[in-house]
Amino acid sequence: MYYNPKVRVTLGALVDTIIPYTPGLASRQGAIQAVGGLYSHVDEYLIWSLDHLFFNVPLASPTAELLNIASSQLIATGAAGGSFNPENFPFGSTFAALSQEDRLKAITLLERLQVNPGILPFLFHNNSTFTQIIADFLNRLTVFCYYSEWSGYGATPFQFEKRKLEDIPISWKQVRYPGRAYHYHALRGYLVDKFIE
């Protein structure tokens, strides 16, 4: 999916923070645990969702901007702990230049309304509730998408009436979810056979 690279890199960095590549976990619990959200293209899902959430007014770009403004503020106030190279912001994304922990701190600034709402982009401008709602939404959607079947739809995941589940999502393997089932031989009886009045 083509999209403005700055937006893509910014939201990609978000996905990579919430569901990162985790070789450490893999070394303890098996190779499958390394894979993260970018491998499953959760960033594309996030962009699509942001662009279709609100009356067909695209929100992916202003949301990326929101994250970048919060990141600049984090840096400006000296609160960014991790190292970053100010010369080298990927496609100009401040958010993507931060460490994973600092990215979460930047989002927290937005959630706690510690970024001046007057400098935020269209729709978020002086609208702190909407800013908080979208910050919450980003986490929720990323996590839901990654652990759902979405990444298994192959090349056309947004053609809802045509798509077919082609692959087993990696996340299902990571959590050992067997997918859709028709029955389980799992009855353990009844604690009460009949309720009384």
Binding site: E101, L104, K105, T108, E111, R112, D136, N139, R140, T142, V143, F144, C145, Y146, Y147, S148, E149, W150, S171, W172, V175, Y177
Partner: peptide, 21 residues
């Protein structure tokens, strides 16, 4: 719940912010 709804309802829905902070 199935894993997407599970992850969302257990780990992504909070008024408390990121637990590590």
């Amino acid at each position: 719940l199935s894993p997407g709804l599970y992850a969302m309802t257990h780990y992504a829905l909070s008024q408390h912010g990121y637990s590590f902070l």
